[in-house]
Computed example of a mutant assay.
Amino acid sequence: MSRTGPLLCGGAGTGALSSRVDGRTSATTYDSFGENFTITLPAAEKTLTMEAFRARVTR
């Protein structure tokens, strides 16, 4: 499955998103606002639910 559409709403240009959780800061800079891009999702057999992921990493 593929999806094509704008990265985020707004005009073409640059931008940044940041967040702070539990004292940790994360930031991402984007340089393609308003441009189309394609996202290809993995096949269903290559995905896990969060519950299944947690079960595997907490064994």
Results as ranks from 00 to 15, higher is better:
Met1Tyr: 13
Ser2Asn: 12
Ser2Tyr: 10
Ser2Lys: 10
Arg3Pro: 00
Thr4Trp: 05
Thr4Lys: 11
Gly5Met: 02
Gly5Asp: 07
Pro6Glu: 11
Leu7Cys: 04
Leu7Val: 08
Leu8Tyr: 09
Gly10Ile: 00
Gly11Leu: 10
Gly11Ser: 11
Ala12Arg: 13
Ala12His: 12
Ala12Tyr: 08
Gly13Cys: 04
Gly13Ile: 01
Gly13Arg: 00
Thr14Val: 09
Thr14Trp: 04
Gly15Asn: 05
Gly15Arg: 03
Ala16Tyr: 04
Ala16Trp: 04
Ala16Met: 13
Ala16Gln: 14
Leu17Ala: 14
Arg20Gln: 13
Val21Tyr: 15
Val21Thr: 12
Gly23Trp: 09
Gly23Cys: 10
Gly23Ile: 03
Gly23His: 05
Gly23Phe: 05
Arg24Asn: 07
Arg24Ala: 02
Thr25Ile: 07
Thr25Gln: 03
Ser26Tyr: 07
Thr28Val: 13
Thr28Gly: 01
Thr29Asn: 13
Ser32Arg: 15
Phe33Cys: 03
Phe33Ser: 01
Phe33Val: 02
Gly34Thr: 05
Gly34Pro: 06
Glu35Asp: 14
Asn36Met: 11
Asn36His: 04
Phe37Thr: 01
Thr38Met: 02
Thr38Gln: 06
Thr40Trp: 01
Thr40His: 08
Thr40Asp: 13
Pro42His: 06
Lys46Ala: 12
Thr47Asn: 03
Leu48Trp: 04
Leu48Cys: 03
Leu48Met: 08
Thr49Ala: 05
Thr49His: 03
Met50Lys: 08
Met50Pro: 00
Glu51Val: 13
Glu51Pro: 00
Ala52Leu: 03
Phe53Met: 06
Arg54Asn: 11
Arg54Leu: 15
Ala55His: 06
Arg56Met: 14
Arg56Trp: 05
Arg56Phe: 02
Arg56Thr: 06
Thr58Glu: 14
